[in-house]
Amino acid sequence: MHELTIALRIREALETEFADDPEMFVTSVTIQVGALSGIVPEALEFAWSHAVFDCDFLADSNLVVDKVAATGFCQKCRENRTITNIQSFRCPICRTPIGDITGGDELDILTVDVRNSSDSP
């Protein structure tokens, strides 16, 4: 439910990163969002346009969300498994409850593609 706040935080992070590059315009930002991050990717995409509309170097940027599945280590199978149903943290093969979560909480900025203000858009 806090996607707008998260979009604003991403904007702040990029403003800090690009403070020394006044000539740069961001064309595309790719975000990695894990299934356990508590973020609805569609809501984040939607919030992005609201969060950056008044920011010159981000206003025309496109937000791309790269979704990552939740994964956990199954103690019985001794394998890392993809958790296909996050309502039920069980190994998809042997149904053993999974306690060791190994991935799925990601929220990272993967890439920021830019163009120089002198380049044609």
Partner: peptide
């Protein structure tokens, strides 16, 4: 790395 600020 996949995170841009780590690579930077």
């Amino acid at each position: 790395d996949d995170a841009f600020w780590v690579r930077r």
